[in-house]
Amino acid sequence: MNQAFIGLGSNLGDSRQHILDAIDALARLPGTRVLARSRLYSTPPWGVLEQPSFVNAAVSIETPLAPHELLDALLTIERAAGRVRGGERWGPRTLDLDLLHVAGVTLSDERLTLPHPRMAERAFVLLPLNDLAPDLQVPGVGTVGELLAAVDSSECTLLP
């Protein structure tokens, strides 16, 4: 079994519901269970600024799926939520699922880099991940808590 951390985001449609539905879909993956779920955050857009704010969260799962199999499952869940890839990079989306970290796995190929290469600089990833694993060591960079302290999260707010 692999422990994995997944970042979730949405800024189109009923974003909160898209996130909750995605967490349910993750729990239905073969042999997989959701270990923990972060709180929900409202975060400003990143990259393309002229778009609605995002709802972001993170989950920790235990799964027998290998990293590439899990990535394929995440893409399937995104498509089921109406996500169409190939549009504007960092643009609006119904659902974005990012495989952030798989315990004990470091890899980089044409499809997947683990840990996620830009997670250390993004408050919208670090805030929810800190809810789950503040002491999680991101290889070569530091702990999630240390990384969160080094980014500006002032425009991110906890959702009720």
Results as ranks from 00 to 15, higher is better:
Q17P: 04
G9D: 09
L158P: 06
P64N: 02
L40P: 02
V84Q: 14
R16F: 08
L158E: 15
L71W: 08
S10R: 02
R39M: 12
G86M: 04
P44F: 01
S42Y: 13
L71A: 11
G91A: 06
G142E: 06
A133R: 03
V34H: 03
D21I: 07
A150L: 02
E69D: 15
Q137T: 12
G31M: 08
A150C: 12
A36E: 09
V144P: 09
L71D: 03
F124W: 06
T106C: 06
R89D: 09
P52Y: 05
R79F: 00
H68Y: 12
L12V: 08
R118P: 05
Q137R: 10
I6T: 06
G31L: 05
L127D: 11
L35D: 02
L95I: 05
R89G: 03
R85Y: 03
E62H: 11
A57V: 01
P44E: 04
V102Q: 03
R37N: 06
A27S: 12
V151I: 10
L49T: 13
E155G: 15
L148W: 07
P45G: 09
R122T: 10
A133S: 01
Q17D: 12
F54P: 03
L112F: 06
I61Y: 00
M1P: 11
L95G: 00
A149F: 09
S60W: 02
F5M: 00
L129H: 09
Q51Y: 03
G140K: 00
L71I: 11
G140E: 08
D24S: 10
L147N: 07
N130R: 13
V84E: 13
G87I: 07
N130I: 07
H101G: 03
P139L: 00
P134K: 09
T32C: 06
F54C: 08
A27E: 05
A66Y: 15
L147Y: 06
H68W: 12
L129I: 00
E121W: 06
A103E: 15
E110A: 15
D135K: 09
N56H: 12
